[in-house]
């Protein structure tokens, strides 16, 4: 197998599993699970970080582990707020990477496509590496690509739902058309879902709830790591085609052989 890395902007990732920091029962558990998953990019909600506190529990537990922090703008409702939050994150966490999440709907946390596009355009101009969380909308993905985002992050199902890849038809179109990496974000509830997304040709997946809320986050982190690897290898090896029909035992056209 040749080296199969993922490049986004200036960074190269060996692991195609991105993770999050929310919902863990303790900062320690979070650190252990992330290390076990071998994830190299971990998203952290800016609103959860106490920027004035140098001993902020979450940051202290992530530092020094070869983990790249990906601040996200969770909680903002407009493009304007998102830009403000991104600038705050850049200054506080010393990274120009931003996971752009604009969900004015606090119930299902569904992303606002209009505000996201607006914010993405501004943030790219301000020098950010923009990773937008969006609906599995192929046109929106192309529009975001046009304004210069470095990847797209369409959802597989509503965030935190653990329902798996419900947006399959649209993800397939996005993967087919995209010129930037496609990272399936949200909805992945089981390693099998992650493997499936990778088999489809997703470049990476982002998983948080399914690991954090598991009875054993460390083992679940390992399971996701293996699933993502398996899915990727299978994608590269090309899956055998699925046969929609069984081959008929009494073919309708075999008489042609007799005629010839």
């Amino acid at each position: 197998m040749t080296t199969d890395t993922l490049k986004i902007a200036d960074k190269t990732f060996k692991s195609r599993l991105f993770t999050g920091t929310g919902k863990f029962s303790s900062a320690n558990k979070m650190r252990e699970a992330i290390i076990a998953s071998e994830s190299e990019l971990v998203t952290v909600a800016l609103k959860r970080v106490d920027l004035e506190n140098e001993s902020d529990d979450m940051l202290v537990h992530l530092n020094g582990n070869q983990i790249n922090l990906l601040p996200n703008t969770s909680g903002v409702r407009t493009a304007k707020e998102a830009v403000f939050a991104a600038e705050l994150a850049r200054e506080a966490l010393q990274t120009n990477w931003i996971k752009l999440e604009i969900h004015p709907d606090p119930k299902y946390l569904l992303p606002d496509p209009i505000e996201t596009l607006k914010a993405a355009e501004t943030l790219v101009k301000l020098g950010f590496v923009v990773m937008p969380y969006i609906h599995a909308d192929p046109v929106l993905c192309k529009r975001l690509e046009d304004v210069g985002v470095q990847c797209v992050m369409p959802l597989g199902a509503p965030i935190g739902s653990n329902k798996g890849i419900k947006t399959l038809e649209f993800l397939e179109i996005i993967i087919e058309q995209s010129n930037v990496p496609v990272i399936v974000d949200a909805g992945i509830g089981a390693p099998s879902h992650a493997a499936f997304a990778m088999e489809l040709g997703a470049d990476a997946v982002l998983v948080n709830t399914a690991i954090a809320v598991s009875q054993n986050p460390v083992d679940m982190g390992i399971a996701f790591k293996m699933a993502v690897e398996a899915g990727r290898i299978a994608y590269n090896a090309k899956l055998a085609p699925i046969k929609n029909q069984a081959e008929a035992s009494s073919p309708l056209t075999s008489f042609l052989n007799d005629l010839n």
Binding site: S26, K47, R48, V49, G75, V76, E81, F84, A85
Partner: peptide
């Protein structure tokens, strides 16, 4: 809270 397997969240917002 911690002894029951939950994390205590002190901050979950920032005001713009």
């Amino acid at each position: 809270i911690q002894s029951q397997g939950y994390e205590v969240v002190w901050k979950d917002w920032f005001s713009i």
